[in-house]
Design a protein around this nucleic acid. Structure first.
Lengths: 318, 318
DNA sequence: CTGAAAGCGCTAACAT
DNA sequence: ATGTTAGCGCTTTCAG
């Protein structure tokens, strides 16, 4: 049977109200009783019951995170940062991975609500959130646009696409494949592609665009890529994310005249293991920090107005 | 103001007890009232307050997971599997990443307790858990041994080490480096090394063992590896985990006569992206499943006795 | 500065 | 088959 505030109160010979006060550091308490209570707490190995606290106060000190998956180093790095920043603000994080399946998002959204999260950070693809009547429920999106009322944090995808394309042109590649990791439309990945195309179309190049299914497993994607590569040849393959680029590389690295492969994301993981990969670096840490700040601010004051988009600068590796 | 069971009861014109019954599908309820209640719930967009439920019953339907990090594909894959299996059993998962820092483990352990988790799955290095008086608190370890009372799930590390070593011998490598990702002692990584050595020592080879610091960042590890590689030359480098192997590969792959690099773990991620890497595959999915089963069983019956170790078979890639 | 008591939303006896 | 009621552990008025 776990020890409760009652046990502590009895042991310290004070009322439970007093114990609560010292735990939360609220109101006036004499040094003497404070010490007594602390002693009792330590002696009994007391841990406050968060469920009870949540029930009581509106401040549950927990926020929810919905991400497509953790396979992608971008998301795991993002999560680690979010968790870190929220912990500093004494918030606890609840993680759900949706695989971009709308039902799972739906389910997890309910789950998070049932857990009384004060707000949600999400990078989910589905339009589920749009339908919900939650315009004043604190939500921040990563790399997705849901509605004008929900702030979205992202990198400058268009510019990133342009920068990559310029390098490709500079290296004199002509036969180019743009390999998109997603077919989804509201996905900002499209801006990356648009950025690339805006550069390519002014130059004498042969550009083809193919979209994979974002939600399929690594293996499925790999098979698709293999099929594409076995029937076509390219001078350069511009992927809209690093994971896809790595997948392509797993085929081309052993070729005689491998095409130039480029990515997008720039997680520490990928950059450390593949320093040679030409890719666009997003400032993941700062983006995570801003999302936390925005969310916390929105929780503090739901009426406050925010920008619809917060766009971070990007840079190229190499 | 969120809608509560009270609102539903009023709207459906029944008592809150009845509503509770239909929510939990307990006791007898007529189809008519059941329908009424469901209608009211839907109409009001009712979501049960999990905090309240937790407070009330000992069954909180949530379990905690403490992992060193999510950087490592092994852990993110493990987590995804654990989450999946627990979801099937209608359990919710709380994830914490400790970076193997004992203070963080300590803190997270308290946090999980405060959240009334029914049990914990951990792969933490520190000896923190040993000191605690929690011999009957449901805990399952992944790849770690804490005490006889806490079941540990792992792969056959010794055999894995042996198998890898045999390949090395077979390929006639003489000058060998064993690169360990950890200095920690209770870590089963040592069994991997012992397995390798048991083979190497019977053959004419020159074996050196170096241990990196498991807890340091990817970048720090990378620097250390660079230093080692710049001053020595090896025919083969046997790493005790895939991440370390990948790090080594990031240096050696462009060399003229690169050494043979081997890993250990076999996450889907690494295998998909580096099908060529010679490594030991652990059955991550089944291991996750067993951990969940064991934990759930232990929660059901804390007195029940379990094995101290559950060792899974491994296989080599290629 | 401290205690008594109400109540957060829910479940589980106990009645009916 | 349904309602009444007593808590679960905690925070927070309101008294003193």
């Amino acid at each position: 049977m776990p020890v409760t505030i009652k046990d502590v109160a009895k042991s310290a010979q004070v009322s439970i109200a007093t114990v609560s006060r010292v735990i939360n550091n609220k109101g006036y308490i004499s040094q003497k009783t404070r010490k007594k209570v602390y002693q009792a707490m330590n002696q009994l190995h007391y841990t406050p019951n968060i469920a009870a606290r949540k029930l009581q106060s509106k401040h549950t000190a927990t926020i929810g995170v919905i991400l497509p998956s953790l396979d992608n180093p971008l998301y795991s790095e993002l999560f680690e940062n979010v968790e870190k920043y929220l912990a500093v603000a004494n918030y606890q994080t609840l993680l759900c991975t949706s695989n971009n399946q709308p039902e799972r998002e739906q389910k997890y959204f309910s789950l998070l609500q049932a857990n009384q999260v004060e707000g949600i950070i999400t990078s989910s693809h589905s339009k589920f959130f749009i339908q919900q009547d939650l315009n004043n429920y604190p939500i921040i999106c990563f790399d997705r646009s849901i509605s004008k009322n929900i702030p979205s944090v992202r990198s400058n995808n268009y510019l990133g696409g342009q920068k990559i394309a310029k390098v490709i042109i500079h290296k004199n590649k002509k036969n180019i494949l743009i390999l998109s990791g997603s077919k989804e439309d509201l996905n900002p990945i499209n801006d990356r592609i648009k950025g690339m195309l805006s550069i390519f179309q002014n130059v004498d190049t042969n550009v083809q665009t193919i979209a994979l299914d974002f939600d399929s497993s690594l293996l499925v994607k790999k098979l698709l890529i293999q099929k594409i590569l076995s029937t076509h040849h390219f001078d350069a393959i511009c992927c809209t994310d690093d994971l896809t680029a790595l997948l392509v590389l797993s085929f081309t690295k052993s070729q005689n005249h491998p095409p130039l492969i480029t990515g997008y994301d720039g997680s520490t993981f990928v950059q450390t293991l593949f320093p040679d990969l030409l890719t666009v670096k997003q400032p993941i840490g700062p983006m995570a920090e801003l999302m936390c700040d925005l969310l916390l601010a929105k929780i503090q004051n739901p009426q406050q107005n925010f920008e619809t988009e917060y766009v971070f600068p990007i840079s190229l590796t190499q």
